[in-house]
Design a protein around this nucleic acid. Structure first.
Length: 488
RNA sequence: GGCGGGUUGGCGGAGAGGUUACGCAGCGGAUUGCAAAUCCGUGUAGACCGGUUCGAUUCCGGUACCCGCCUCCA
């Protein structure tokens, strides 16, 4: 069996991965707060942990991995957004607006992440469906003396957990020394954080032993992970910016609630997505959404490929030149191999490219894994006598990486099918026009048509067997239609 | 200020204490009616200063610069 090694943020070392139960490998990844379209930064952990999920399924078996990713659908940012909608004229009450907003955002998220080729996790719990479990956990923490109620709030007492700060490598005292935190008067210690807080009458709220209120941000992950994966599980992942305070607080809550369980054994953090050297984030406003890129015509697989070209623990830049390079390679891989006769119906039992799994198993070294694919292509697939087996191996490997060009979900297709076929027929007719001119050796005419098609944003290939016209991101079908009518 | 990460050729980006990474772009050639695509060939590295070593881009120390977290964030 392949030995998987993963960098564990908790120990700051690369460790051999040994699941608690090889028959049920369990992974929890922090999902989005649902009030807006997912930006590219939100998408990175989705792709990174999707690759890990696929690797684990490959190694331990498809049914032997449980993947949980939550939706945070109770949060002050959501409330704020809903209030903005009220101000803008939405006459419904806040809770109704919030429900619509979160439902709609979850739908967008699914469509966008499907387009990136990410498999859906086994469970995608919404925080609001786990309020009872959160209240129970908070009550247990109070009972154990790790939390206290004050002025309608419940706070976690960081001094009750001696290891607080271990994950992020900081001490409570150091943090207070450099304090930038606003200290609420009811806090015993400046670093204490909220488990429960009171809600105003129009805000979302639930009855609790501490009055009507809502949970703090961190408790949901502790409660949902425990409910769906148990008090101890294998992997907990998320963006590096969640390491502190979110994950630190999760650990404190869960480990105090279940002192002997240990919570997550391996903590993994992906680096940030950057734009011009700065973190892409909603608070900085320098973000663009996955939907923006899809609408610009970048296929989801290209976005995925660009992400895989950077190791997950390094900052990643989205640039058009990287996307173009990725598109070029991917186009060739999919058209030459996946869509070739040898690439059809390749079984999962086919082996993967030699060395590929080792690269992935080495802390998800996806850049190296892609290089191994390129080298395999160069050595085995560029010759005259290509073997069907080699193509099958290649296609099987692409599928494992989620790059086989087969979308998970028809809803993510960029165009409706009818239009797609109309366009396909149009490009075929243009190719026929070029062939007709060439067969008369009227090269001036065939060149004019070709150049006009290229100007309209299409790719034209003229081979002995005939001409082909391909669509590109810049393709303008209206111009092509005009070209057909007014053939120069 | 505290803690953590990074700096590789025009760009992207790996591994390894000593042998070509790889890709894109560029350049030369083949092929083509001309292009595109494809194929063959090819140059440019390891922030800076020290140390260890027969030998360091790779290990150690320092300097500079960049980035992240410390406040909501993937």
């Amino acid at each position: 069996m392949v030995t998987i090694r993963l960098q564990n943020s908790l120990t700051r070392r690369k460790e051999v991965f040994e699941p608690l139960d090889p028959g049920n490998v369990r992974m929890y990844v922090c999902g989005p707060t649902v009030y807006d379209r997912a930006h590219l930064g939100n998408a990175r952990p989705v792709v990174v942990f999707d690759v890990l999920y696929r690797l684990l399924r490959h190694v331990y078996g498809e049914g032997a991995v449980t993947y949980v990713r939550n939706f945070t659908d109770v949060d002050d940012k959501i409330n704020t957004r809903a209030r903005e909608m009220q101000v803008a004229g939405d006459s419904r009450d806040l809770n109704a607006i919030i429900r619509t907003l979160t439902d709609e955002t979850i739908g967008w998220y699914h469509a966008d992440m499907d387009a990136l080729g990410a498999l859906r996790p086994a469970h995608e719990p919404r925080a609001t469906e786990y309020i009872g479990q959160m209240i129970a956990m908070i009550a247990a923490l109070i009972e154990k003396g790790c939390a206290y109620a004050a002025e309608g709030h419940v706070l976690f007492d960081v001094r009750a957990y001696p290891d607080y700060g271990r994950l992020s490598g900081r001490s409570v005292d150091d943090m207070i020394a450099g304090a930038r935190v606003e200290v609420a008067p009811y806090k015993r210690d400046p670093m204490d954080f909220v488990l429960w807080k009171p809600s105003s009458d129009d805000e979302p709220g639930w009855n609790s032993p501490w009055g009507r209120g809502r949970p703090g941000w961190h408790i949901e992950c502790s409660a949902m992970a425990q409910d769906l994966l148990g008090p101890a599980f294998d992997i907990h992942g998320g963006g590096l910016d969640l390491q502190f305070p979110h994950h630190e607080n999760e650990i404190a809550q869960s480990c105090c609630a279940h002192p002997d369980a240990g919570f997550a054994r391996v903590w993994m953090h992906n680096e940030m997505v950057q734009v011009e050297g700065k973190k892409m984030s909603k608070s900085l406003g320098n973000f663009f959404t996955v939907r923006n890129l899809l609408d610009q015509g970048w296929p989801g697989e290209v976005i995925r490929f660009v992400m895989l070209q950077t190791h997950y623990r390094k900052p990643m830049d989205w640039t058009e030149s990287r996307a173009r390079t990725a598109e070029k390679t991917l186009k060739r891989w999919i058209s030459e191999y996946v869509h070739s006769p040898f690439g059809q119906g390749v079984a999962d039992s086919v082996s993967v490219v030699s060395g590929f799994l080792d690269a992935l198993a080495d802390d998800l070294n996806t850049p190296k894994a892609l290089t191994i694919l390129r080298e395999f292509e160069k050595e085995r697939l560029r010759g005259v006598n290509i073997s069907a087996d080699d193509v099958a191996v290649f296609v099987r490997t692409l599928r494992l990486l989620g790059l086989d060009g087969v979308r998970q979900n028809a809803a993510s297709l960029p165009r409706d099918v009818k239009r797609h076929f109309e366009e396909l027929n149009l490009t075929r007719r243009i190719a026929d026009m070029i062939d007709a001119a060439r067969s008369e050796r009227n090269f001036a005419k065939s060149d004019r048509i070709r150049d006009a098609a290229i100007t309209a944003g299409f790719e034209v290939k003229i081979e002995k067997a005939g001409a082909s016209v391909f669509s590109t991101r810049e393709a303008d079908y209206e111009k092509l239609k005009r070209l057909e009518r007014e053939a120069p």
